[in-house]
Design a protein around this nucleic acid. Structure first.
Lengths: 162, 162
DNA sequence: TGACATTGGTTTCATTTGTAACTACTTTGC
DNA sequence: GCAAAGTAGTTACAAATGAAACCAATGTCA
């Protein structure tokens, strides 16, 4: 199938359009990851992210989790709710500010973390293992700048939206 | 906030975990893009992708669009439906196979394409413009391998799921 | 020819998601 | 000390989404 050239002779090639390719790749990664977590551990991505944050930092408020993991606060709220229901989280009230609560992994949650984390690394290895160190470094640089730029753009676009 | 080390002394640092960073970056890009398209042209991402494909290739079936754009067939179906409702698409029956239909941009649809495409490029420029040519090349290489690997993994995970 | 499997595409249904409204609490400014 | 504004987190509601059932048409193969 050849790209046709249209009235203005202008063609946007999606195949080489970076934002598009980035999103497609991420969707596939996300899907593969989700499938693995779901089938092996019966847990969704949002839940896993909460566990991962708490596994890494020990104790956080829902707000902190949301900020660090770039998740919407309702998503965090629901993930926390289901994890609490499954006894994977410990909630401790904050005396100084009763609106928020300190969250951490329960022994059961820690167990899940300890068992998923290595398998997450293995999965990552399967996806990025072949990539050379230089390419990986470049990849990270690009991700950094793009993340920053896109975040800024998303904000300004959100303002324009009103 | 320092990462704590847990029982096994094992810590997964999400900040430097590539799949995670990839997905976060893509979400931001996707959000920025969606916001822009929505506010400026009143169109969603799925609809835009259909338009982009048809703008690039002229005439395709829904199935081809789905395959090329990595979209679920129901998503394509719905996007096509709303675009048809807005008179941006022309549907032509296939005599040889009455199940499928040939889709292409109507004059109105072409107009939309012609006006969004440059602005999409501009948006991409704003996000990737600062990236050096070498880094960009490396970035594309990594995207290629990761896309392939993740697609394979998503498939096998799907099989395991049953 | 005619049963059976397959395919392109749509629709139904349950789930997921984000927006907005809300509750409970805290901070600010007077 | 208190009204107004702001914040952490939850909930209600509507829109988006994917899995599976479905329909019509085509292919297969005996």
């Amino acid at each position: 199938m050849k790209p046709m050239s249209n009235a203005r002779g202008f063609v946007l090639r999606l195949e080489s359009f970076l934002p598009y390719r980035l999103v497609v790749a991420a969707n596939l990664v996300s899907q593969a990851t989700a499938r693995t977590y779901a089938t092996k551990y019966g847990i969704g991505i949002a839940e896993w992210r909460v566990i991962a944050q708490l596994g890494e930092f020990g104790t956080m408020t829902a707000k902190q989790i949301g900020a660090r993991s770039h998740m919407h606060k309702t998503k965090v709220s629901r993930a926390v709710a289901t994890l609490t229901k499954r006894k994977m989280l410990a909630k401790r009230a904050n005396r100084e500010d009763k609106r928020e609560a300190f969250l951490s992994l329960s022994p059961g949650g820690l167990e899940v973390y300890e068992s998923i984390a290595p398998s997450a690394l293995a999965l990552s290895q399967r996806m990025f293992g072949e990539v050379s160190a230089e390419d990986r470094a470049a990849f990270e640089r690009v991700l950094d700048t793009v993340t920053a730029r896109a975040a800024a753009l998303a904000d300004t676009a959100a303002e324009l939206a009103d």
